[in-house]
């Protein structure tokens, strides 16, 4: 299982989730007003500095850049082809700073803190009689099980490759869909066994005293 959370007790872990999310939101608003490469470089240094304060394991999380650099490289190439290379540079730097900052929040925030922080956004649902807890739980489940689904896919690809030599095929899609549905069935059962998405607080307590089971 891949888990994005980095265990620790740094100042970033202690900063409230809402504050961190707000900081990234404000930073993204501000960065869209800026186009000076000097300021971007300073921001980039600041963000990387934040990773450094998490210690070696924090810096290791910068490995994210490996995948990211391909994407950003392609974007820059598109700008170059369309003759807007120098307009492209701040765009790329802005993206880079924001992605690194958002990732920093992800790796230093526990999921239930994150849920607590985003719950107010779902509050309006309660005005029309829907539960705010359900969508928040959905977010948690997606974050938790998306990597597991990728794991299922890679296992299937290995099995497929072992027997056919080919790495990928559209033929893997239907069984993947079935496996994912089966997985969600199991997860739903496990959730139901612990009181479901609504919890048990509303239900009457069970009667006490001896009982045959």
């Amino acid at each position: 299982m891949i888990s994005i959370y980095l265990q620790g007790d740094s100042w970033l872990h202690r900063t409230p989730a809402g504050l961190k999310l707000l900081a990234v939101a404000v930073a993204s608003l501000l960065l869209f007003q800026v186009s000076s490469a000097f300021i971007f470089a300073a921001c980039l240094a600041a963000v990387v500095g934040c990773y450094a304060t998490l210690g070696r394991s924090g810096l290791e999380r910068l490995a994210l850049l490996r995948g990211l650099s391909v994407l950003l490289g392609v974007l820059l190439l598109l700008h170059w082809v369309s003759g807007t290379f120098w307009e492209g540079v701040p765009v790329i730097l802005r993206l880079l700073v924001l992605i690194l900052a958002a990732n920093l929040v992800s790796i230093t925030t526990r999921m239930d803190d994150m849920l607590e922080a985003v719950m107010p956004l779902f509050k309006p649902l309660e005005w029309v009689g829907l539960s705010a807890r359900k969508p928040a739980l959905c977010v948690a489940l997606v974050l938790r099980f998306a990597p597991y689904m990728m794991q299922i896919l890679s296992r299937m690809r290995e099995a497929y490759q072992a027997r056919t030599g080919a790495k990928n095929s559209w033929k893997l899609l239907p069984p993947l869909a079935i496996q994912c549905l089966r997985m969600s069935d199991n997860v739903a059962d496990a959730l139901q066994a612990r009181g479901g998405s609504e919890g048990l607080s509303g239900q009457a307590d069970i009667p006490t005293g001896p009982r045959a089971v």
């Binding site: 959370y5 999921m111 997860v187 496990a190 959730l191 048990l200 307590d205 009982r211």
Partner: peptide
């Protein structure tokens, strides 16, 4: 769920949250 606790076969599909405490 208040009366009967069920532990399923695959722990990977039972744990919903990323950390133990959660």
């Amino acid at each position: 769920p208040r009366l009967v606790g069920v532990v399923f076969q695959n722990p990977d599909l039972q744990a919903i949250f990323p950390t133990v405490e959660e």
